[in-house]
């Protein structure tokens, strides 16, 4: 690339990055402003103050919400990774009649919009007495076709000879799964886990339906509540809430962007 072309590309990259990242920066800046400044429509705070953060934690049980989101996302991540890897293991290593049909059924579940099932699901969870509980928030999401598919691709790369050798040595399937397949696939498992955590942390509709109790409410719903209560006057406080919500996932993304990209592309394309 010539010098001029390079300069031009950098200029384009910088402009694009500025536009794309602007809303996030904007939220950060507003969260450090005092009420009056926000109402004047300023862009840069005269003085960086933490008052909004203190306010946010005092006015709403933000800490409880964050904790709930952490627990819920972690449980969903764990459930999805374990269930997906068990299923993927069977699809790769245990030959049985009807396996391909079953795999096709698994894949076809990706076409079912979850929203088309939400009314009966709500009724089921209500009947089981799972409203306002971590169980109701997490268990319905443990099975995951995309995760199964992704891990199946990964498990297929494990040499068949390894499996045959373990059979000859009389090692049980489950031990092979636990002490060979899982450790070898650590990278894929971590990538999938990251993706699951991100998605679970950002979930909105289901927590809105099944929680009305502060004790289990997730932070996304807490944010909606904050925004609808404080809207007219205290934008700074709301933005402090926003920053607290996006910080964990943004950090996760910054640390794992490359890995996530490689993992997802592998799943999407092969």
């Amino acid at each position: 690339m010539s010098w001029g072309q390079k300069l031009f590309t950098y200029a384009l990259l910088l402009i694009a990055a500025a536009i794309m990242f602007f809303p996030i920066i904007y939220a950060f800046l507003i969260s450090f402003m005092q009420g009056g400044e926000v109402l004047q429509g300023n862009l840069w705070p005269e003085e960086f103050t933490l008052a909004n953060y203190i306010n946010a934690f005092e006015k709403v049980p933000l800490l409880t919400y964050l904790f709930n989101s952490l627990i819920v996302s972690f449980l969903i991540m764990l459930g999805q990774v374990i269930f997906s890897s068990l299923a993927a293991f069977a699809f790769v290593f245990i030959p049985f009649k009807g396996r391909n049909v079953l795999f096709f059924i698994f894949i076809s579940t990706m076409m079912i919009p979850w929203e088309a099932t939400m009314v009966p699901n709500f009724q089921t969870v209500q009947m089981l007495g799972w409203l306002n509980s971590y169980t109701g928030l997490t268990v319905p999401f443990f099975a995951m076709a995309f995760g199964t598919f992704l891990l199946r691709q990964q498990f297929k790369t494990i040499p068949k000879e390894l499996y045959e050798a373990s059979q000859v040595a009389g090692i049980s399937n489950f031990r092979f799964f636990r002490s060979v397949v899982m450790p070898v696939s650590k990278t894929s498992l971590v990538t999938l886990g990251m993706y699951c955590f991100l998605t679970a942390w950002n979930m909105y509709l289901w927590p809105l339906l099944v929680t009305n109790d502060e004790q289990v409410r997730t932070v996304q719903i807490g944010l909606k509540q904050m925004q609808s209560q404080e809207i007219s006057t205290e934008w700074g406080v709301v933005m402090a809430g926003v920053v607290m919500v996006i910080l964990p996932t943004l950090l996760l993304l910054f640390l794992g962007q490359k890995r996530l990209q490689e993992g997802l592309t592998k799943g999407a394309l092969k």
Binding site: I24, L198, L223, M239, V242, T249, L253, F254, K258
Partner: peptide, 21 residues
């Protein structure tokens, strides 16, 4: 690349509140 993929880490709720403002 990290900046361009950053909105993947943004929840719908948080993004919507920012855009509302």
């Amino acid at each position: 690349r990290t900046i361009f993929s950053s909105t993947m880490g943004m929840s719908v709720a948080a993004s919507s509140v920012i855009w509302m403002f």
